[in-house]
Simulated assay, not measured.
Amino acid sequence: MTDTSVHPDADPASLADIVARQPSAHFAALDQVGMRHIEMPLKLKLDGETCLLPAQVSAFVDLRDPTARGIHMSRLYRLSDEYLGRGALDVAGVRALLDAMLASHTGLSGRARLSIEFTLPLRRDSLRSGLSGWRQYPVRIDATLEDGRWRCEIGADVLYSSTCPGSAAMARQVVRQQFLEKFGSGQVDATAVADWLESPSGIAATPHAQRSRARVQVALADDVDELPLVTLIDLIEATLATPVQGAVKRVDEQEFACLNGENPMYCEDAARRVRDALDAQPWIADYAIDAAHFESLHPHDAVAQVVKGVAGGFGRSA
């Protein structure tokens, strides 16, 4: 509410927070207070260059003083603007912002949380043609600081293709039966078989495949200084082997079909593959994996989730 009795040319420093002094019958401590999805640019180093990317920032502190009406929202905004406007963001920059958020609420708060969401554009090479195209990856940075305890997480969504192993096996059964009906059990001519395999009759059934998504969040080890978002994306794509493609020619599409044939997987398989890859990385202290296959057979999704199980770490979600 605007105090219309204040002249517009009045000294801003003299404007008292009238509402904060008003009594309330409902004062109590609060777990988290702040702002979600602040529109703000972010500086990030990519391929040796500092890039400016649009982001959404969420900044929160707790409210431990049960007699306080509220927190200083504008301070969180100004600090986010100041610290994210400096050089390329790294772990030290995230920690410095959280320290400043708590310092700005001395006596009120003991916990600060920061979440940054944005889309990371990466140019990716095609599989065989020599082309390259753009992919955009939703990524997240989440960090908390409470009573001196610090945790920094990064996350990414990676799209990939998943061919159903069960459907592939049933398709092979159909092709086998068609082969026996066509050529019988006696000796056959190799050229005739090859021609049949290349014909529509030779692929009488195809396994179903679908676009899928691996949503991965990892907690960084204490000695990590950078924010290895690209490293995480590369690791997930290499592990699953069938990431979706940008620019493609027919030779790329054929290679993609081969990769899908070599890597049939249920959502359970995908989650376990990513888990094994993350377990082998010393820079990852904790993880949460959500592998979702957007079924082409069903109107619902198939989902597998796994967390590392570190004490005080990620919990299991629905």
Rank of each mutant, 00 (worst) to 15 (best):
T2E: 09
G186W: 04
S296D: 09
A257R: 15
A96D: 15
P299E: 09
S162M: 04
E39M: 09
W150Q: 06
C164I: 06
I284P: 00
V19G: 03
R135N: 05
A171R: 12
I71G: 07
P66D: 09
T163K: 13
A288N: 01
Q177V: 09
T239Y: 08
I233Q: 05
G202V: 12
L98P: 01
Y83N: 09
A241R: 14
G93L: 07
V175E: 14
A100I: 07
D62K: 00
I71A: 11
D252H: 04
R140P: 00
V158M: 11
L63Q: 05
A68H: 09
T242V: 11
I236S: 01
Q22S: 07
R273I: 00
G133Y: 02
E262W: 14
A16S: 11
D9N: 12
A192D: 10
D142K: 11
Q254D: 14
L42H: 02
P41C: 02
A205Y: 11
M1G: 12
A285Y: 01
I289F: 00
R86P: 02
P121I: 05
S126A: 15
E226Y: 06
V244H: 05
N260Q: 15
W196G: 10
S212N: 05
D252T: 11
A214I: 05
R272K: 09
G110H: 08
A209R: 06
C51K: 15
G133E: 03
Y266I: 04
G107M: 06
F294Y: 13
D11Y: 03
C152R: 12
S58F: 00
C152D: 02
M101V: 09
A20L: 09
V307W: 02
M40C: 11
T163V: 12
V158P: 08
A96P: 04
E82M: 12
R95Q: 13
C267Y: 05
T231C: 00
A241S: 12
L114A: 02
I71Y: 01
A96Q: 15
D279I: 04
I203S: 12
R95H: 11
C267R: 00
Q187Y: 06
A204P: 06
L120C: 05
A10Q: 06
A10E: 08
T119Y: 11
L232V: 00
A28R: 14
W196C: 08
C152P: 01
A192K: 12
L127R: 08
G315P: 05
T191W: 05
Q281Y: 04
H37L: 14
E82K: 14
A302V: 15
E253Y: 06
W134K: 09
V94I: 15
R172Q: 14
D301S: 09
K249E: 04
I289P: 00
G93T: 07
A304V: 10
V6A: 06
A103H: 13
T231F: 02
V303G: 01
M73W: 08
E226M: 07
C51Q: 15
A10D: 02
S161R: 00
R172F: 03
Y287I: 00
Q22D: 03
L235I: 04
A285E: 03
S201L: 15
Q22M: 13
A29I: 06
E255L: 10
L79F: 07
D65M: 01
D62F: 02
Y266K: 05
M73I: 10
A103Q: 14
D234W: 03
V193S: 07
A205L: 13
L98T: 07
A292Q: 10
V218I: 14
R275Q: 11
Q305G: 04
D9W: 04
Q178D: 14
H208R: 03
